[in-house]
Write a protein that binds this DNA or RNA. Structure first.
Lengths: 196, 196
DNA sequence: ACTATTATTGAACCGTCATTCCGTAATCGC
DNA sequence: GCGATTACGGAATGACGGTTCAATAATAGT
């Protein structure tokens, strides 16, 4: 038997909470902030998501399934694998330059540091998905001759993983789209020599 | 006329405060933490450095003049400029892998975000010094023929700036020395083609 | 209509935060 | 030694943090 129905949409609330954590960070976000951004009272927040940390990891996973998912889709597209990587990086640049708040996973990795193991594990897991997709894409590139057969795929995937992290930091610093674009261009040039 | 003498060394206290902020972040560091790590009472901390934010920017500048300074020295060494860049990056890898707490400037850039303009400006300024040193080193490399004359120096400097940020993020994530080394190696390979 | 169940609201709770007040201790010039 | 000055230690202070309690509102089943 069901009681009083919820007056909100879980996904929308989670999306707003995510955005607030994203902009302000975990520690700097209070329940008053969350009340304002979601429009819910805190008892509703507690009832639906548990305490602050639970709500945060829910927001983290929401981020993974909405924002990070787009990266995977781009990387997994059919067609030229290295142009997929290019589109992926350029999209990252575009978003980073526009939003100026970096990536929630990157920000969390830094804020949680070595302290909060639970949170850190969620972050690692989400980011690992991206790197694995990157690996598959690079492997396809080798298979279809876009990259040299001697390419160390996992090494290059790790490389682009790091490049993406650097991009997000620069984005959060509020650096110009031009600088981000330059960074991405030089990074992408790493893949070109083998294509000649 | 002088009163009671200080019972501590300013630089040492600042060094300990810096390390605490570095490990825990600004928001997550309380005065109780600072008392423990520095050994001073909070009245002494207030008397010597002002409020929390002032103490923090003092710690930031201390970081710049001690930790970041080492980067500049390596980059400015005589001899082969590109091997300077190599040594610089490998040292970053070594420290990042050993300490596992990233870079105070990077961490602060992410935590302060677009919120705290004062702090953000200090960070930008400290980091800009490194990028400028990088530019000078690369220019020397072009001058002595280690890099192609067509090299876009400022672009490549921005690139290594971003790479360093990515390295620091990965270090704070606690990723293995091997992964950091791989990242740095691929990044450094960008400079090699012109050397052949 | 009545009860059981769930959502919502607002206020209370207790701890901790940054900051400051006050009394004491240690050094100076004299 | 004495007063002026500065450093120190501990306890207050007021605000705000996350969390929970008590009361009310809204539905479903019977």
């Amino acid at each position: 038997m069901a009681g009083r129905p919820k007056s909100y949409d879980d996904a929308q609330v989670l999306s707003q909470a995510m955005r607030t954590f994203w902009k302000q960070g975990y520690e700097a976000t209070s329940y008053s902030d969350l009340e304002k951004s979601t429009g819910l009272g805190r008892q509703s927040l507690y009832g639906a998501f548990g305490d602050k940390k639970c709500l945060f990891v829910a927001a983290l996973k929401h981020y993974g399934q909405n924002v990070t998912q787009l990266s995977l889709e781009i990387l997994n597209q059919d067609g030229s694998p290295i142009s997929n990587v290019g589109r992926w990086l350029r999209r990252l640049v575009e978003r980073a330059a526009r939003l100026k708040i970096g990536c929630l996973l990157t920000n969390t990795a830094i804020e949680a540091g070595t302290h909060d193991a639970d949170v850190q594990q969620v972050v690692q897991q989400e980011l690992a998905c991206v790197e694995q997709a990157l690996q598959r894409t690079l492997r396809r590139a080798v298979a279809c001759g876009e990259l040299s057969p001697q390419t160390n795929v996992s090494e290059v995937a790790t490389y682009f993983f790091g490049v993406a992290q650097g991009l997000m930091v620069m984005g959060r610093m509020g650096q110009s789209r031009i600088r981000l674009t330059r960074f991405a261009n030089v990074a992408l040039a790493t893949l070109q020599p083998a294509a000649n």
